[in-house]
């Protein structure tokens, strides 16, 4: 079976380097983008099996990008794991998990907080991909 392709979208270079290295070491193929605009383009081109998406990015935030993915009929089935520091300092009281999903948009498949727990992230990715492939067959 060909390795699954995972896309990392984060505006911090360190996080991108860390996650791509971690995922490649664990047998995944990776691609990455450093902002929301570039991210959407690459998702359409690369068609990853799963996306690790940072919540807060300049220009286009992870929330906006997530909604666009879910509204696009060709991309809406790609599972997404949201990654963020639990809350932005400017908005300490907003529960982002509730904010992301609306009536028409389901919540993301996974939610990871920084600092990233390697084992938990790998487990979440495996679980999500397994669920998707079993659901698809």
């Amino acid at each position: 079976m060909a390795p699954r392709k995972i896309m990392v979208i984060d505006d911090e270079e360190d996080v991108v380097t860390f996650l791509t290295t971690l995922l490649e070491e664990n047998g995944y193929e990776t691609c990455w983008a450093m902002d929301g605009v570039e991210g959407l383009e690459k998702i359409k081109r690369e068609r990853p099996d799963l996306i690790c998406l940072d919540l807060l990015m300049p220009e286009k935030t992870g929330i906006l990008l997530y909604r666009e993915i879910r509204k696009d009929p060709e991309l809406k089935d790609i599972p997404v794991i949201m990654i963020t520091g639990f809350a932005a300092p400017e908005y300490p009281l907003i529960d982002f998990k509730r904010f992301i999903s609306t009536k028409s948009i389901p919540p993301p498949e996974g939610f990871m907080e920084k600092p990233i727990d390697q084992k938990a992230l790998l487990a979440a990715i495996k679980e999500t991909l397994d669920a998707k492939s079993s659901g698809g067959t």
């Binding site: 996080v15 860390f18 932005a88 600092p115």
Partner: peptide, 16 residues
């Protein structure tokens, strides 16, 4: 929040 971000970078650096 700031320290968490730095910690993420540090852990990532150590892992890489």
């Amino acid at each position: 929040h700031t320290i968490k971000n730095i910690l993420t970078g540090l852990e990532g650096g150590v892992y890489v």
